[in-house]
């Protein structure tokens, strides 16, 4: 019998397993690559500050409680806004849809929460939403965001995947130094809407606290 033979020939046995487990992946995943890589018409990649904020989101692993995927149900579009579209995520590496909603979805939180609200909320969630079980992220008000890494990320995705960042995005230190003022300018616009004096001073000094970058990112979720 074929299977008895197979069980005595480990090489063919292993080959058999490999074939059986490979083709589902090939059939299901590969055809989607062309289609799902198309961005929405006016989709822009995130700015360096927003990318730095996304990396704060990854570092503090907000994905463990928050999704970014609004499903096409009336109850979700009423709560969070329009259902999510594939073309909106094209520049997201990695995707951050999440798999657990201990807290609400955040895919369009930029539409209905604002800088000052986030400032208060990240400092002490239960003070804003009584009963909240979200931890306070006070350390984000003192830790500095890594904007240089965010810039390196922008350059990398531009070169490797043609993500449309401008011609000034180059992988050299000089190009980064030239771009940095733009990031600080954007950070200042966020800090202007905040109340915390230390944050304002830090930004004026040319530093970017994590919370400033994070809020830039959250505001960009629309």
């Amino acid at each position: 019998m074929f299977f008895h033979w197979l069980e005595k020939n480990p090489f063919f046995f292993a080959a058999g397993i490999s074939i059986v487990i490979s083709f589902a992946g090939l059939l299901e995943i590969v055809p989607n690559f062309a289609e799902a890589a198309r961005p929405l018409v006016d989709l822009k990649p995130r700015t360096v500050l927003q990318l730095a904020g996304k990396n704060v989101y990854k570092k503090d692993n907000c994905i463990s409680c928050h999704s970014q995927m609004i499903r096409p149900f009336k109850s979700e579009t009423d709560r969070y806004g329009a259902y999510s579209l594939s073309g909106e995520y094209v520049y997201d590496r990695p995707f951050l849809w999440g798999s657990k909603r201990t807290g609400p979805d955040l895919h369009r939180v930029g539409n209905y929460r604002t800088t000052d609200w986030h400032e208060n909320h990240m400092w002490d969630p239960p003070a804003i939403v009584p009963g909240s079980i979200m931890p306070a992220y006070k350390h984000q008000f003192t830790n500095l965001a890594d904007i240089e890494t965010a810039y390196a990320e922008a350059v990398t995705v531009k070169n490797a995947f043609n993500t449309p960042y401008g011609p000034e995005f180059k992988g050299t230190r000089a190009a980064w130094e030239a771009h940095k003022p733009k990031v600080l300018e954007e950070a200042k616009r966020i800090a202007d809407d905040m109340k915390n004096k230390d944050i304002k001073e830090a930004v004026a000094r040319g530093e970017v606290p994590e919370v400033v970058a994070l809020i830039a990112y959250l505001n960009s979720l629309k």
Binding site: G81, Y112, T114, W117, D193
Partner: peptide, 10 residues
């Protein structure tokens, strides 16, 4: 106080 978001179309 701060910024109140728009609820247009919501």
């Amino acid at each position: 106080i701060g910024t109140m978001p728009s609820f247009k179309d919501r």
